[in-house]
Each structure stands twice: as C-alpha cells, then as structure tokens.
Design a protein around this nucleic acid. Structure first.
Ligand SMILES: [Mn+2]
Ligand SMILES: [Mn+2]
Ligand SMILES: [Zn+2]
Ligand SMILES: [Zn+2]
Lengths: 142, 142
DNA sequence: ATCTACATTATAATAATTCTAAACTATTGA
DNA sequence: TCAATAGTTTAGAATTATTATAATGTAGAT
C-alpha cells in the first residue's frame, strides 16, 4: 500500500501537468488495493469530504476525461442514466448489484473465454465484455 | 408480415388504454420482421415523418416507459449518454457498431453459453449479457 | 523573475429527461 | 345514449447531467 506514490511523475509521463487538483485526484483514484468504480459525484464527494480538497465540478469532469483519454480511466456503461468510471482500464467483465448499484470486477478465472462464432463483414472486434446483473436472493423467498 | 395487427387487443390485455398515440407507436415498434433497436429521438422522428403522427415528446417518453414496465420493451445500456430501447425483451447479446452506433442482436448460436464460476453470497443472477464492440477494419490497414 | 501554455474556476449554456397542471378521451354503467 | 370518471396527452416549466466560456491562476521553461 504505497502512500504518497509518485503521481507527479506519472502525470508528467503522459504529458499532463501535475497540478494540485490532479495529484489529489490521483491519490483518491489510484492509491488503492482494488479496482475502483465510481461516478463523478462519488469522486467529488470523496475529494471534498475525505481529502478536504475543494475542487470545481468542471475540473472533475475535465480531469476525469483527461485521465480517460490518457488511458488511466475507462468509462463503463451499465446505466444509461449515469456515467460510471473504472480504474481498471482493460476489457473485463462485471457483476452489477442492482440493489446497491455497485460494480464488481470479474477475475479472468470467473468466466470462461467467450467464443464469438458470428462475424460482421468489414468489422473487427474491439472488445467482448460480459455484464452479470445480480440482486438480493431473499426477496423471492417465502 | 401482419399489417394492422390487433394492437388494440394487445394493449387492453396488459391494461393500457388503446389510445391513438399508443396504437401508432405499436405499429412503428412491433410491425416488423426483426428486432428493432432505437432511441427516443429515432422513434419521434419515425412517428412524425413516416407515420405522420404528431406526438408530444413527453408522451413518447411516458409511453415507452409504460411499454417497458409492461414488458414490451427493454432498455439497453451501451452508451451512458443515450438511452437505447429494444423490442427484444429477453436477455440476449449484442454487437455494437462503434462507427454507426447501431445495435445488432446475437442469435443463441452466435455465442456459447456463458459459464459463471464466481457467485456472490446472498445474490442471485438476474441476467448475463455480452456486449461485443466492433468497428471498421480498414482503418488499421496500411 | 518573467513568460507562456495549459489548468482551474465560477458561471452560463445545452441536452436529455421528468414534472405539472390543464385539456382531452376511452371506458363504464346509469 | 351519455354523463361520470379514471387514465392520457399535451405544452411548457423544471430538473439533472454534462459541456462551453472566458477570466484568472499556475507549472515549467528560459
Ligand atoms: Mn463521457
Ligand atoms: Mn429509463
Ligand atoms: Zn471494472
Ligand atoms: Zn437487442
């Protein structure tokens, strides 16, 4: 668990200026054991409440999209009404908990490799991702 | 290819009043050979241009959601910025063409049955769906 | 220390969706 | 048949998420 990692370096490497705001965002996003799934609002709340970093909403949007473009973050579509982001930028599968609206990553080993038999002329496959929707089991019990 | 199907009956059966607007929408949505994937805007445009049915946007939203609740339509999440709907309400897989933003259904036979090894305590699986993103092949050709 | 390009900010603008409340209509049953 | 009623459509306002604008601030270079 590396505390103040060298995010300044990391940002420089991809050509983003290591501003105070971006470094703080890196700490919130990447100083973690596990993949982090979040919405813009989650992130704003974390920054202001846990990190005491006042930051404008526009900057959070801009910076998240800058990180996305540079390959630090990936946008996930599970709900057409909200944007989720993911610190795991590889193509991977998810469980989505419909009760809590939480995303959980699947390990490679959790799902067999998907075999696509159909192919679409002139098109190549960019990614294959599975979404497993789960919900509480006890509501159907008598 | 049934022309003016009995949508009035169909609507009554699930407890929706067969108003002029709903019947027209049924014709647009369900009088088809194949699955139809659309956005609210697609639908409004079809209704006004092809069917000559002036209809308020609020009614299209309300009616699409009424249909969704009754199981006639299903909402699909491929893009967090837009809502797509599907006349195929079963859990099924899709190709998404990133060039044209078109959805294409997968047949059962196109993808092997997905085997999920992980299970989440207290949660049951509601659906397992695969999204295959495809894009034009020729841009990577030299 | 100064310069310059890039970033942040508050705020305004836009776009998608939902709400509101009035007008309308399909159904019921007197 | 025809009013009563419950549900529906509508225009327009409101809300929410997101993006644009333009002024101010700052990191990195010289
Ligand atoms: Mn986005
Ligand atoms: Mn919806
Ligand atoms: Zn993930
Ligand atoms: Zn479909």
């Amino acid at each position: 668990m590396p505390k103040n990692c060298n995010f300044i370096e990391k940002l420089r490497e991809v050509g983003l200026r290591p501003t105070k705001q971006r470094v703080k965002m890196c700490e919130v996003l990447f100083n973690r054991e596990k993949t982090f799934h979040f919405t813009i609002n989650d992130l704003v709340k974390l920054l202001s409440e846990k990190m005491n970093q006042k930051i404008s909403l526009a900057t959070v949007y801009n910076t998240v999209h800058a990180f996305e473009k540079k390959g630090y973050l990936k946008e996930i579509s599970i709900d057409s009404h909200k944007s989720y982001f993911d610190t795991n930028t590889s193509a991977h599968h998810h469980f989505f908990d419909e009760d809590t609206h939480e995303l959980i990553d699947c390990d490679e080993s959790d799902i067999d490799k998907i075999n696509i038999r159909k192919n679409i002329t002139g098109k190549k496959i960019n990614s294959v991702e599975v979404l497993v929707r789960v919900a509480s089991d006890n509501q159907t019990q008598k």
